[in-house]
Structure formats: C-alpha cells, structure tokens
C-alpha cells in the first residue's frame, strides 16, 4: 500500500516537474520578458541592469530553481494584458469554474450511471436501444455545437434561460458562489447540461459495457445457479464489480470536464479560468497561460492520485495481498 502510494507520488511529482519546466520555458524564452516590462525609450544599459536584477543572466538551472521557488510561494508574475498579479486573477475566477464542473459532473453521474445500469440489464429493450442512439449522438455532437443549440432554442427562441454569465453571486469570504441565488442556478443550468452531456453519455456507455461484461462472468452464473434472486445479483453482486473500473474512469473524466469547461465557458461567456486561458492564448499572455497550465496539472494529478488510491481501497485483490 505505502509502496503503491509512493510510486504514484513519484509519478505525480514527475508530471508536475515536466509541466513546470514547460511553463518555465514558455516564461523564459517566449518573447523577451524585459521587453514586456519596459517602455520603448529605456536605454540599453537600463535594460541590461534590469536583466541582471531579474536574474536572467544566471545559469539556467538556477533560474529554473528560482522559478519553482516563486511558484511555490504563489508568485506567478503579472499578466501582460491586465497588469495584475496572475494568482489573484485566477483565484477570482476559480469558483465559477469549479461550480460549473461539479454541477456538470453530478448531472453526468446521476443520470449516466442509472441509464447505463438499465441498458446493461436489458440490452435488447427498446429503451436501451434509444439510450444507445442518444448516447452516440451525445458523443458525436461537439460540445460547442450543443451549447450553441441550447442557447438558440432555450435562450433566444424560448427566452427561458439566460445565454451568458453566471447571474447574481454571493461572496463567501473570497469564494463567490452562484449556487445560493435563483439567478445563479438559472444561469448554470444550460452550461452544466452542455458540459455534462458528453460525460453522461460516456459514463452511460461505460457502465453498460462493464455491466454486460460482468453479467457474463462465471461468478454471476454461479450466483444464479445457487438461486440468489435477480435483484440481489444485479444490484449487489454485479453492480459492485462494475463500479470499480467505472469509478476509475469517471474520476479521470472529471479531468476531461475541466478541459471541456474551456469550450463551455467560451460559448456561454462563463467567467471562469477556462475563458481567461482562452483569452490569454489569443493575446499570448504568457504568465496567465503558464500559470493555468500549472494549476490544471496540479488538479489533474491530484484527481489521478485520489482515483488510484480509491481503486486500491475498493478492490480487495489489491488491498489484501496473498498470504502465501
């Protein structure tokens, strides 16, 4: 167990170092950091002095180490575009993204898992076939197109949902939440459905496939042969075996929700970090880009780590090693 976690921690650290290196390279080599900070008529000597003061003449490993130290202290530099500290910019927008992701993920899980279980138990029923066709459409339709269509139908034609922004928010000591106001919920519904739909269909297909697979195994047949009733077999025996792999992949999907959050935030002008990142890409605002990368890497790596450990805890074959 400890070995396993250590191994994963080493792997996680490797990922973070690689991403940090990437961010550092962007920071250091994309354009001239000095040129971004000074005006046109700064003298050459002044620039050189600034260069020396910023440590840009130090050996590269030293510069990287200093970069890492700064990052660990939460100092990510100033946004080129907005001239504000990047850390503050991101902190302001993080709650919007996290709330959107969690609502979308909940929709995906709460709808996707039951649909998948149903389709797995009755693979030939017409409802299952309907689910499958709908799910295929869900996987094939691009997220942004779904978002636009929802806006078109419910926002523009029917005018029953707002088409952009997150509505009124309440400030809870640095965390602005939209989940405490009606307009906040009203605003989050369309983006969350947009974002959750792909994940929902994905989870549904996964649960269905796993369920079908488990129901074919010998131990399920044996349980039937012993006369254990169907409900118990389906919902106690099969479901638990199904949920182990589903849990892993669903956890990883949380990462993909963050990724597609960028798209959804762009379509709905949702004031989250994804939108900020997109704007940073188009204006080549390097501090914002590299900080976003680091932040996302930390989130992904943590999710993966948690999923791995959960997997370890749930599966007795991993948890309890063979005594012999």
């Amino acid at each position: 167990m400890i070995r396993f976690v250590l191994q994963r921690l080493v792997q996680a650290a490797t990922v973070l170092i690689v991403v940090a290196l990437l961010a550092f390279v962007m920071f250091r080599y994309a354009g001239d950091p000095v040129a971004q900070m000074v005006s046109q008529d700064t003298t050459f000597e002044d620039r050189a002095a600034l260069r020396e003061a910023m440590g840009l003449n130090d050996p590269l490993p030293v510069q990287f180490a200093e970069f890492v130290v700064r990052v660990v202290h939460g100092n990510f530099g100033l946004s080129y575009q907005m001239g504000q500290p990047v850390a503050g910019l991101l902190a302001d927008r993080l709650p919007a993204s996290i709330e959107l992701s969690l609502v979308a993920f909940s929709i995906a899980l709460l709808v996707g898992v039951p649909m998948g279980v149903y389709a797995g138990l009755r693979p030939n029923g017409w409802i299952s076939r309907l689910f499958l066709i709908v799910s295929l459409a869900g996987i094939s339709l691009p997220t942004f197109f779904i978002g636009i269509m929802l806006i078109l139908v419910f926002g523009v034609e029917l005018s029953i949902f707002p088409t952009f922004g997150r509505g009124e928010t309440v400030d809870l000591g640095g965390w602005t939440t939209g989940l405490l106001t009606f307009s906040g919920w009203h605003s989050i519904i369309l983006p969350a459905i947009t974002l959750g739909l792909f994940q929902m269909t994905f989870i549904m297909r996964l649960v269905r496939a796993e369920m079908l697979e488990v129901l074919r195994t010998d131990y399920i047949k044996f349980a039937r042969a012993r006369g254990i009733d169907n409900g118990r077999i389906n919902f106690r025996y099969a479901l638990r075996n199904t949920l182990v792999p589903v849990m892993t992949i669903a956890g990883l999907q949380l990462g993909s929700i963050i990724a597609f959050g960028i798209v959804t935030e762009s379509v709905f002008q949702w004031p989250g970090i994804g939108l900020l990142f997109l704007q940073a890409i188009s204006t080549v605002d390097i501090p914002v880009m590299s900080t976003y990368l680091l932040l996302v890497a930390v989130i992904f790596v943590s999710i993966n780590l948690i999923v791995d450990i959960l997997y370890f805890l749930v599966d007795p074959r991993l948890r309890i090693s063979d005594k012999r």
Partner: peptide, 16 residues
C-alpha cells in the same frame, strides 16, 4: 502522463 490530460487540453497547450 499524457493520458492524464484530455486530448483537447493537450492540443490547446501545444497551440498555446
């Protein structure tokens, strides 16, 4: 390591 990051994210990073 690469599969930790969804395809679209990798693409965005490379583009960035």
């Amino acid at each position: 390591i690469q599969m930790t990051f969804p395809a679209i994210m990798v693409a965005l990073m490379i583009d960035g």
